[in-house]
């Protein structure tokens, strides 16, 4: 367990010190959301109706930007080889790194989402739900993304391929994330979407590290 925390701590420290990735993701999130009214027109009623959808899609795209570095940097400098000889099973190595990605990307984006909601005239009542759903839904983004990052670690143009592989897998998270926010009127619909969203995140927290570790084992050979 000590190894797990050491790895998590190191990855979070690196992300904060290197800073660029988090800043770029947040900046991208802001720009994409700001472009939407420019494309759709400044009709506040329309924007308010589709705000949840815009925020979630922009969030997914922003998170996607930082995914390819999860394993690539450690692969390039040989760290991954040494991590594999450690006391931690590779499944927990990938879990620690996915968790670090969630802490350094998922949480900042989730905190940023309601701020950007202002730009889209998001209904005030939806704010707490938006924060809750983005926090509960983003683990799926990191843990599914880690699978794609591990699969495409050694490919040229890995980023584009990663998007092609991972975005279809994000469909359930997207659907239930948005439906929880826009189902605000009906409490039963909200509870159902929210619980299903949490369940999807839990499934990916188990599935992601297993699949990512399997992919890393292939790469290490």
């Amino acid at each position: 367990m000590k190894s797990f925390w050491a790895l998590l701590h190191r990855d979070v420290t690196l992300a904060i010190r290197e800073g660029g990735a988090i800043g770029t993701a947040l900046g991208f999130f802001l720009v994409v959301v700001s472009l939407m009214p420019l494309g759709l027109g400044p009709d506040l009623n329309l924007l308010s109706r589709i705000a949840a959808g815009i925020l979630w899609i922009a969030l997914l795209l922003a998170a996607l930007l930082s995914l390819n570095r999860i394993f690539e940097a450690d692969h390039e400098d040989g760290t991954l080889d040494v991590l594999a000889t450690g006391p931690l099973p590779l499944e927990l190595v990938t879990a620690a790194k996915s968790l670090a990605h969630w802490v350094t990307t998922g949480i900042p984006l989730a905190i940023m989402a309601p701020v950007l909601g202002i730009l889209l005239n998001l209904d005030l009542a939806a704010y707490p739900i938006l924060v809750a759903t983005t926090l509960v839904g983003t683990p799926a983004v990191s843990f599914l993304g880690a699978i794609g990052a591990a699969l495409t670690m050694k490919t040229r143009r890995g980023g584009l391929l990663l998007a092609l592989i991972v975005l279809p897998l994000y469909v359930p998270t997207l659907i239930f994330g948005i439906s929880a926010v826009s189902a605000g009127a009906g409490p039963t619909g909200l509870a159902a979407s929210f619980l299903i969203l949490a369940a999807i995140s839990l499934v990916t927290i188990v599935l992601g590290p297993l699949a990512a570790a399997a992919a890393l084992k292939v790469h290490l050979q």
Binding site: R10, E76, D77, G78, T79, V82, T85
Partner: peptide
């Protein structure tokens, strides 16, 4: 049970 040192150093530049 082994230390493996390959061609790469496994050193993080910002640490």
């Amino acid at each position: 049970q082994a230390h493996v040192v390959g061609h790469t150093n496994a050193v993080k530049l910002s640490l």
